[in-house]
Protein backbone atom coordinates (compact mmCIF):
# COMPACT_ATOMS: atom_id res chain seq x y z
CA UNK A 1 0.00 0.00 0.00
CA UNK A 2 2.33 2.75 -1.10
CA UNK A 3 1.85 6.50 -0.92
CA UNK A 4 -1.21 6.43 1.27
CA UNK A 5 -1.07 7.22 4.96
CA UNK A 6 -4.46 5.71 5.74
CA UNK A 7 -6.78 3.52 3.71
CA UNK A 8 -10.23 2.52 4.92
CA UNK A 9 -12.48 0.23 2.90
CA UNK A 10 -16.04 -0.44 4.03
CA UNK A 11 -14.90 -0.06 7.60
CA UNK A 12 -17.71 -0.94 10.03
CA UNK A 13 -18.04 -1.09 13.76
CA UNK A 14 -21.16 -2.23 15.54
CA UNK A 15 -22.03 -2.08 19.23
CA UNK A 16 -24.82 -4.61 19.50
CA UNK A 17 -27.59 -3.34 17.22
CA UNK A 18 -26.11 0.10 16.93
CA UNK A 19 -23.78 0.75 13.99
CA UNK A 20 -21.39 3.49 15.06
CA UNK A 21 -19.29 3.39 11.88
CA UNK A 22 -21.15 2.23 8.80
CA UNK A 23 -19.19 1.02 5.73
CA UNK A 24 -16.84 3.95 5.69
CA UNK A 25 -14.27 4.23 2.88
CA UNK A 26 -11.61 6.90 2.46
CA UNK A 27 -7.91 7.46 1.77
CA UNK A 28 -5.57 9.91 3.41
CA UNK A 29 -2.51 11.04 1.43
CA UNK A 30 0.89 11.19 3.04
CA UNK A 31 1.66 14.60 4.55
CA UNK A 32 -1.94 15.69 4.25
CA UNK A 33 -3.98 17.53 6.88
CA UNK A 34 -7.18 15.52 6.87
CA UNK A 35 -10.17 17.03 8.67
CA UNK A 36 -12.70 14.61 10.12
CA UNK A 37 -15.94 16.45 10.83
CA UNK A 38 -19.23 15.34 12.26
CA UNK A 39 -21.79 16.12 14.91
CA UNK A 40 -21.40 14.63 18.39
CA UNK A 41 -22.17 10.93 18.18
CA UNK A 42 -21.63 10.76 14.40
CA UNK A 43 -18.92 8.13 14.86
CA UNK A 44 -15.75 10.22 14.64
CA UNK A 45 -14.22 9.00 17.85
CA UNK A 46 -15.13 5.38 17.09
CA UNK A 47 -13.37 5.67 13.72
CA UNK A 48 -10.26 7.12 15.37
CA UNK A 49 -10.31 4.42 18.01
CA UNK A 50 -10.34 1.77 15.29
CA UNK A 51 -7.46 3.34 13.40
CA UNK A 52 -5.38 3.70 16.58
CA UNK A 53 -6.02 0.12 17.64
CA UNK A 54 -8.17 0.88 20.69
CA UNK A 55 -11.15 -0.89 19.09
CA UNK A 56 -11.32 -3.80 16.69
CA UNK A 57 -13.41 -3.22 13.55
CA UNK A 58 -16.46 -5.44 13.03
CA UNK A 59 -15.82 -5.74 9.30
CA UNK A 60 -14.08 -3.98 6.43
CA UNK A 61 -10.43 -3.26 5.81
CA UNK A 62 -8.12 -0.60 7.16
CA UNK A 63 -4.45 0.15 6.65
CA UNK A 64 -2.49 2.69 8.66
CA UNK A 65 1.01 3.64 7.47
CA UNK A 66 0.68 0.73 5.02
CA UNK A 67 0.05 -1.73 7.85
CA UNK A 68 -3.05 -3.86 8.43
CA UNK A 69 -5.04 -2.93 11.57
CA UNK A 70 -6.07 -6.55 12.05
CA UNK A 71 -2.64 -8.11 12.01
CA UNK A 72 0.05 -5.48 12.39
CA UNK A 73 -1.26 -3.30 15.21
CA UNK A 74 1.97 -3.53 17.21
CA UNK A 75 3.93 -2.08 14.28
CA UNK A 76 1.29 0.57 13.67
CA UNK A 77 1.60 1.74 17.28
CA UNK A 78 5.22 2.69 16.70
CA UNK A 79 4.40 4.88 13.71
CA UNK A 80 1.41 6.83 15.03
CA UNK A 81 0.86 9.51 17.61
CA UNK A 82 -2.43 10.18 19.40
CA UNK A 83 -3.89 13.08 21.30
CA UNK A 84 -7.27 12.32 22.79
CA UNK A 85 -10.27 14.45 23.64
CA UNK A 86 -9.52 14.10 27.29
CA UNK A 87 -6.41 15.82 28.46
CA UNK A 88 -3.51 13.41 28.40
CA UNK A 89 -0.54 14.74 30.35
CA UNK A 90 0.07 13.88 33.99
CA UNK A 91 -0.88 16.82 36.21
CA UNK A 92 1.30 15.72 39.08
CA UNK A 93 4.46 15.46 36.99
CA UNK A 94 6.53 18.40 35.77
CA UNK A 95 6.68 19.34 32.10
CA UNK A 96 10.13 17.82 31.80
CA UNK A 97 9.05 14.61 33.52
CA UNK A 98 6.05 14.29 31.20
CA UNK A 99 8.25 14.68 28.14
CA UNK A 100 10.76 12.20 29.52
CA UNK A 101 8.01 9.72 30.33
CA UNK A 102 6.25 9.81 26.95
CA UNK A 103 9.58 9.83 25.12
CA UNK A 104 10.57 6.87 27.28
CA UNK A 105 7.60 4.69 26.42
CA UNK A 106 8.37 5.22 22.73
CA UNK A 107 11.96 4.19 23.41
CA UNK A 108 13.66 7.49 22.54
CA UNK A 109 17.31 7.57 23.62
CA UNK A 110 18.34 10.08 26.29
CA UNK A 111 20.34 12.34 23.99
CA UNK A 112 17.48 12.79 21.52
CA UNK A 113 15.05 13.26 24.39
CA UNK A 114 17.11 16.10 25.78
CA UNK A 115 17.28 17.80 22.41
CA UNK A 116 13.55 17.34 21.88
CA UNK A 117 12.79 18.76 25.31
CA UNK A 118 14.71 21.93 24.45
CA UNK A 119 12.85 22.17 21.13
CA UNK A 120 9.46 21.86 22.80
CA UNK A 121 10.32 24.48 25.44
CA UNK A 122 11.27 26.77 22.57
CA UNK A 123 8.15 26.09 20.46
CA UNK A 124 5.59 26.19 23.25
CA UNK A 125 7.40 29.10 24.89
CA UNK A 126 7.60 27.46 28.29
CA UNK A 127 10.87 28.89 29.56
CA UNK A 128 11.32 28.24 33.26
CA UNK A 129 7.94 26.57 33.53
CA UNK A 130 9.57 23.35 32.34
CA UNK A 131 10.21 22.32 35.93
CA UNK A 132 6.72 23.20 37.10
CA UNK A 133 3.96 20.67 37.50
CA UNK A 134 1.62 20.52 34.55
CA UNK A 135 -1.34 21.20 36.85
CA UNK A 136 -0.15 24.79 37.29
CA UNK A 137 -0.03 25.60 33.56
CA UNK A 138 -2.82 27.40 31.68
CA UNK A 139 -4.98 25.19 29.43
CA UNK A 140 -3.59 26.65 26.20
CA UNK A 141 -0.05 25.68 27.13
CA UNK A 142 -1.20 22.25 28.24
CA UNK A 143 -2.85 21.60 24.87
CA UNK A 144 0.16 22.78 22.91
CA UNK A 145 2.37 20.70 25.14
CA UNK A 146 0.16 17.65 24.69
CA UNK A 147 0.41 18.04 20.93
CA UNK A 148 4.20 18.38 21.07
CA UNK A 149 4.33 15.25 23.20
CA UNK A 150 2.12 13.31 20.77
CA UNK A 151 4.61 13.91 17.93
CA UNK A 152 7.68 13.52 20.14
CA UNK A 153 8.68 10.23 18.51
CA UNK A 154 8.28 11.67 15.01
CA UNK A 155 5.38 9.46 13.92
CA UNK A 156 4.21 9.04 10.32
CA UNK A 157 0.67 9.95 11.29
CA UNK A 158 -0.78 11.79 14.24
CA UNK A 159 -4.43 11.43 15.27
CA UNK A 160 -5.89 14.47 17.00
CA UNK A 161 -9.31 13.98 18.59
CA UNK A 162 -10.84 17.43 19.11
CA UNK A 163 -7.55 18.93 20.20
CA UNK A 164 -8.78 22.52 20.45
CA UNK A 165 -12.00 22.10 22.41
CA UNK A 166 -12.24 24.65 25.19
CA UNK A 167 -9.23 26.64 24.05
CA UNK A 168 -9.29 30.41 23.39
CA UNK A 169 -9.12 31.69 19.76
CA UNK A 170 -5.53 32.93 19.98
CA UNK A 171 -4.27 29.62 21.33
CA UNK A 172 -6.30 27.80 18.66
CA UNK A 173 -4.52 29.88 16.06
CA UNK A 174 -1.12 29.04 17.56
CA UNK A 175 -2.16 25.41 17.79
CA UNK A 176 -2.93 25.31 14.07
CA UNK A 177 0.42 26.89 13.33
CA UNK A 178 2.02 23.99 15.17
CA UNK A 179 -0.08 21.57 13.12
CA UNK A 180 1.11 23.22 9.88
CA UNK A 181 4.70 22.96 11.01
CA UNK A 182 4.32 19.28 11.81
CA UNK A 183 2.70 18.76 8.43
CA UNK A 184 5.62 20.49 6.69
CA UNK A 185 7.92 18.08 8.50
CA UNK A 186 6.12 15.26 6.71
CA UNK A 187 3.73 14.15 9.45
CA UNK A 188 0.25 13.24 8.22
CA UNK A 189 -2.41 14.92 10.36
CA UNK A 190 -5.77 13.27 10.99
CA UNK A 191 -7.84 15.75 12.99
CA UNK A 192 -11.42 15.77 14.26
CA UNK A 193 -13.02 19.02 15.29
CA UNK A 194 -16.38 20.61 15.73
CA UNK A 195 -15.07 24.12 15.14
CA UNK A 196 -16.15 24.39 11.52
CA UNK A 197 -13.89 27.37 10.80
CA UNK A 198 -10.97 25.04 11.51
CA UNK A 199 -12.11 22.83 8.66
CA UNK A 200 -10.98 25.57 6.28
CA UNK A 201 -7.40 25.00 7.46
CA UNK A 202 -7.45 21.38 6.32
CA UNK A 203 -6.26 20.08 2.95
CA UNK A 204 -9.29 17.84 2.67
CA UNK A 205 -12.38 17.45 4.81
CA UNK A 206 -14.75 14.55 5.31
CA UNK A 207 -18.14 15.03 6.94
CA UNK A 208 -19.61 12.16 8.88
CA UNK A 209 -23.33 11.87 9.54
CA UNK A 210 -24.79 8.92 11.46
CA UNK A 211 -21.76 6.70 10.98
CA UNK A 212 -21.36 7.32 7.24
CA UNK A 213 -19.16 9.73 5.32
CA UNK A 214 -21.57 11.94 3.39
CA UNK A 215 -19.04 14.25 1.78
CA UNK A 216 -15.30 14.24 1.20
CA UNK A 217 -13.40 16.92 -0.72
CA UNK A 218 -11.17 19.97 -0.37
CA UNK A 219 -12.88 22.79 1.55
CA UNK A 220 -13.20 24.73 -1.73
CA UNK A 221 -14.58 21.73 -3.56
CA UNK A 222 -17.18 21.09 -0.85
CA UNK A 223 -18.38 24.67 -0.91
CA UNK A 224 -18.67 24.49 -4.68
CA UNK A 225 -20.56 21.21 -4.69
CA UNK A 226 -23.04 22.34 -2.08
CA UNK A 227 -23.15 25.89 -3.39
CA UNK A 228 -22.30 27.25 0.04
CA UNK A 229 -20.24 30.13 1.41
CA UNK A 230 -18.66 28.27 4.26
CA UNK A 231 -18.06 24.77 5.54
CA UNK A 232 -20.55 25.56 8.26
CA UNK A 233 -23.27 25.89 5.68
CA UNK A 234 -22.24 22.63 4.02
CA UNK A 235 -22.34 20.93 7.38
CA UNK A 236 -25.76 22.26 8.29
CA UNK A 237 -27.16 21.28 4.92
CA UNK A 238 -25.89 17.73 5.29
CA UNK A 239 -27.26 17.46 8.80
CA UNK A 240 -30.61 18.94 7.70
CA UNK A 241 -30.84 16.61 4.77
CA UNK A 242 -30.67 13.75 7.18
CA UNK A 243 -33.56 15.16 9.18
CA UNK A 244 -35.42 15.89 5.93
CA UNK A 245 -34.95 12.35 4.65
CA UNK A 246 -36.04 10.85 7.91
CA UNK A 247 -39.14 12.95 8.03
CA UNK A 248 -40.34 12.17 4.52
CA UNK A 249 -39.19 8.62 4.10
CA UNK A 250 -41.04 7.30 7.07
Amino acid sequence: MPDKAIIAENLTRKFGDFTAVDQVSFDVEKGEIFGFLGANGAGKTTAIRILTGLLAPTSGKAFVAGLNVYTEMEKIKKSIGYMSQKFSLYDDLTVRENIRFYGGIYGLPRSILKQKTDEIIEIVGLGDAVNKRVASLPLGWKQKLAFSVSILHNPDIVFLDEPTSGVDPITRRQFWEMIYEASENGITIFVTTHYLDEAEYCDRVSIMVDGRIDALDTPAGLKKTFNADSIEEVFIRLARKEVWDERYQS
Binding site: I80, Y82, M83, F87, I105
Partner: peptide, 10 residues
Protein backbone atom coordinates in the same frame (compact mmCIF):
# COMPACT_ATOMS: atom_id res chain seq x y z
CA UNK B 1 -7.76 9.71 29.58
CA UNK B 2 -4.11 8.75 29.95
CA UNK B 3 -4.88 5.07 29.59
CA UNK B 4 -5.86 5.53 25.94
CA UNK B 5 -2.58 7.24 25.20
CA UNK B 6 -0.71 4.43 26.92
CA UNK B 7 -2.60 1.77 24.98
CA UNK B 8 -1.95 3.52 21.68
CA UNK B 9 1.76 3.59 22.53
CA UNK B 10 4.01 0.55 22.01
Amino acid sequence: GNMEILLVSP
